[in-house]
Design a protein around this nucleic acid. Structure first.
Lengths: 157, 157
DNA sequence: TAATAAAAGTCAAAGAAGGTCAAAGAGAGG
DNA sequence: CCTCTCTTTGACCTTCTTTGACTTTTATTA
C-alpha cells in the first residue's frame, strides 16, 4: 500500500466487511492515533473514498461521546435509474419536469404516494418562494439530494 | 450508548413507554445519583431532548416533595399536533429545530423513517443553498407546506 | 410567621469530540 | 524541469457534553 490514506481506507473497509454490513462506528482521534496521523486525515479519507457515489453513508456527531459512523449501501439496480434521473435533473429543472420525474419514480414503485406528495409539495414553486431562474436551480439541487437519500434509504432494508 | 446524556434520554423514554404514555414523574437528584452525574445534567438532557418540538411537555416543582414531570404530548389528534408544529415553525426555523420537528413526527408515527429522511434532506442547509436569514425562512415555508400535505394525506385514510 | 431545609433552575466555563480550509509536500507525466 | 493532482499537516472553528457555583421556589419546622 502506497500511502497512509490508502491504508486507512483499507482498514475501514475491512472493519465494515467484518461487521456483517452493519454500520461501523469509529472515534476519529482513536484511528488517527492508531495510524499515527493527524485526525483531519480521517476527514480527507472519508471525503475522498466514502462518498455517496462510492456507496457509503457517513454520519457523525461532535462533542463528548462523538463518533463517525460509516454504513455501506448495497448497490441496487435502482441506483442506475436514479443516477439517470439525476442526470436529467442537472443544474436546473422546471416544476413540470420535476413533477414528471416524481411521477416516474412513483410509477416505478421507488416511492410511495405519500412520499411523492411530499416531494411534489417541496418542489412546487409556491414552496420555493424565490424567483426564476434561481428557483429552478434550487429545485434541481433539492431534488438531487432527495434522490440520493432515496437511493440509500431504499437499500437499508 | 455513547454518553451520559444519551443514556439518560433513553432511560427516561423507556420510563415513559413503560407507563402507558402517561406522565412520568422523577426526582432530579435521584436520577442524578442513579447515573452518577450532577443534577443539572438532567436539565441539560431535558432541554435538549424533551422539548415541545420533540413532542414533550415538561412541568416541575421545587422545594420539598419537588419533581419533574414529563408528558408525551398526546398525538391522537394529528391535526392539532401538526397545527401545533406549524406554530412552532412560524416564519423562520433553524435546521436544528426543523430536525427536532421531523424527529418528533417520526417518533409519533406520523411519518415513516424514509419520509423523515427525505424531509430532513430537503431542509438541510446544503439543500437550500441560499444564505441566512432567508434560508431559515425558506425552510419554514417548505416545512409548513409539507406539514399541510402530510395532514391532508393522513386524513384520506 | 420566620427561619431553615429541600428541592429544582440557570448559566457560564471547561472539556471533548469532529469539521474546515488552505498551505506545504510528493509523485506522475509531459 | 514544470505542472497537475493527490496527500499530508496543522491552525482554527463549531458543536455537543459535563460540571459546579449560585439562584429561586416551595415545604417544613421552630
Amino acid at each position: 500500500m502506497r500511502n497512509m490514506s490508502d491504508i486507512i481506507e483499507n482498514y475501514l473497509k475491512q472493519l465494515i466487511n467484518d461487521s456483517q454490513q452493519e454500520a461501523v462506528e469509529i472515534k476519529r482521534a482513536h484511528i488517527a492515533e492508531k495510524f499515527d496521523c493527524v485526525p483531519s486525515q480521517l476527514n480527507y479519507v472519508i471525503k475522498t473514498r466514502f462518498t455517496t457515489e462510492h456507496g457509503y453513508l457517513v454520519e457523525s456527531k461532535r462533542g463528548g461521546g462523538g463518533y463517525i459512523r460509516i454504513t455501506k449501501i448495497e448497490t441496487h439496480r435502482k441506483a442506475d435509474y436514479l443516477k439517470h434521473l439525476k442526470q436529467v435533473i442537472g443544474k436546473s429543472v422546471s416544476q413540470q419536469r420535476g413533477e414528471h420525474i416524481i411521477q416516474s419514480m412513483f410509477e416505478n414503485e421507488i416511492i410511495t404516494e405519500k412520499e411523492a406528495k411530499i416531494i411534489l409539495t417541496v418542489i412546487h414553486r409556491e414552496s420555493l418562494m424565490i424567483d426564476l431562474p434561481y428557483r429552478d436551480q434550487l429545485r434541481a439541487h433539492i431534488l438531487s439530494k432527495v434522490l440520493d437519500v432515496i437511493l440509500y434509504s431504499e437499500e437499508e432494508q
